[in-house]
Design a protein around this nucleic acid. Structure first.
Lengths: 227, 227
DNA sequence: GTCTATACACAGATAGAC
DNA sequence: GTCTATCTGTGTATAGAC
C-alpha cells in the first residue's frame, strides 16, 4: 500500500476527529447541537494546530484563536473550560486516535518481518496524514500537568513495546538477528519521528513519504534480518 | 575514546561558554567587570536552560528567572536587552560552539568508515555533555525571528553535509554501499537526535551513552559497509 | 552593579444582552 | 449559541535610589 491509498482508505478526517471529541466531552461543553459542535470544534482544532506550529501553544493567545476561527472569545469558552483543558483535549484525543489505528495494523499480519514493515509504514503514513497532531503532541507535551505527562510517556513506551514484541517473535523464529530489542526499537522510533519533526527538510529536497518509508525499510532489512 | 574521557578532555564548561558570550556581546551589556559578568551569565544560562526544559521559554517569566538566579529583575536587564534577545544569544552561542567542536572531529581522521564513526560518536557525546543546550536549541527554535530561524536550518544542513561528504568519499573508495546519501545521513541525524530528545527513556532503562553509541554504530556498520 | 517600586500592555476568563 | 464589554492577574521592561 502506498500513501495515497492509505490516506484515502484509513486516515481520519478533521471532522471524524471532531465528532469523536464531541461525543467524548459532550457533558463538559455548553454546545448541544451536534452539527454545530463538530463544525466549530474542527475549526478550533485546525486553528490551534496551525498557530501553535508557528509559535507554540503558550504563545498563542485566546485572541489569536478567536481571530483565526472567526469566533468570539465568549463563543470559544462554550467549547472548552479553559486554555489548559483545550491542550489536554487535543493531546488525549491524539493519543487515543493513534493508539487505535496502530493496533489495528499490528494485528493484521502474522509473519514477523512483514508485520514489522507494516507497523513502521503505518506509523509514518499516519504521522504524515496527521502531521499537525503528531507535531503538536510532541512539542507541547511539556506544558501538560504531571498526570497527563505520565500518559504521554506511557504511550511512547506502549508503541515501543509493539515493536519489541515483533522483534522478539522474529528472533525466536530465527528470522531476525539476536540483538538488544529495546535499543533497536528506539532506533526505529527515532526514524519514524524524524519524518514529522523535520518535514521542512524533506519538502525542500522533494522527498515523498513513500520514498522515505522505502529507505527506512532498507535500513530495517539490513539491520534486523539474518544474512 | 569513551564518554568519560571525552567529557574530561573536550567538553566545554559552563564558564567557558559564559566567557565566550561575554567577549562576543561585551558592547551590548552594561556590565564591564569580566569576572562578575562571567559568573552571572553562567548562572543565568543554567537557570534559563533549567526552567525552559520543564515549561518552555515562553512560559518562563522574567520573575521566574529572577528567583532562580537570585538576581533582581533590574540586574538581569543589565546582561541582555530583553527576553527575546536572551533567547537569541543562547541559540547563537550554542550553534557556534557545536559547529566548532564538530568540525574539529571531522578533520581528525582520514579513512571514511573511521571518520564516520568518529563524527557520529562525537556528536552524541557532545549532545550528552551539553544536553540542556541541545534540547533548548531544538525545542525553542520556533520562537526565533525569521532571520535566526534560517540560521538554524542552515546549521542542520551543514552538519548533515559533513555526513554526506564522508558517505560519498566512502562510496567512491568502494568501502560503503552505494545509496541515497541524503536519506542515509538523515537517518544518522535522527539517531543522534534521539539521544538528547528522549533521555528520560534511557535513564529509566539504565542505558549509558557509551552503550547507546555502540548500538548506533552497529546500525551504521550493517547499513553502510559493503558486505 | 544591584536593588525596589512601578508603568503599562496584554493575558485568560466571565457576565449578561441578544 | 454567539456576541461585546469588562474584570483581574501577570507579563516585560524601566526609573531612580543606593
Amino acid at each position: 500500500m502506498d500513501f495515497k491509498e492509505f490516506k484515502k482508505k484509513i486516515a481520519p478526517s478533521g471532522k471524524d476527529i471532531a465528532r469523536e471529541v464531541f461525543f467524548q466531552n459532550q457533558n463538559a461543553m455548553r454546545i448541544k447541537k451536534e452539527k454545530t459542535a463538530i463544525n466549530n470544534l474542527n475549526k478550533i482544532f485546525n486553528a490551534v494546530l496551525g498557530i501553535t506550529q508557528e509559535k507554540g501553544f503558550q504563545a498563542m493567545s485566546m485572541r489569536d484563536l478567536s481571530q483565526k476561527t472567526d469566533m468570539s472569545l465568549g463563543a470559544l469558552y462554550a467549547y472548552f473550560p479553559g486554555k489548559e483543558e483545550l491542550l489536554g483535549i487535543i493531546q488525549t484525543q491524539g493519543r487515543s486516535m493513534i493508539k487505535g489505528l496502530l493496533e489495528q495494523f499490528a494485528n493484521a499480519r502474522e509473519e514477523p518481518f512483514e508485520k514489522l514493515k507494516a507497523v513502521i509504514k503505518a506509523h509514518i503514513f499516519l504521522s504524515e496524514s496527521l502531521r499537525p497532531w503528531f507535531f503538536f503532541m510532541f512539542m507541547e507535551a511539556r506544558n501538560l500537568k504531571p498526570a497527563e505527562l505520565k500518559a504521554v510517556k506511557a504511550m511512547e513506551e506502549h508503541t515501543q513495546k509493539i515493536l519489541i514484541d515483533i522483534l522478539e517473535q522474529g528472533e525466536k523464529k530465527e528470522i531476525f538477528r539476536p540483538n538488544d530489542h529495546l535499543l533497536t526499537s528506539s532506533m526505529l522510533k527515532a526514524m519514524q519521528q524524524e519524518w514529522y519533526l523535520k518535514r521542512w527538510k524533506y519538502k525542500k529536497h522533494n522527498i515523498s513519504v513513500d520514498q522515505y518509508v522505502d529507505h527506512v525499510l532498507t535500513w530495517v532489512e539490513a539491520f534486523c534480518l539474518c544474512p
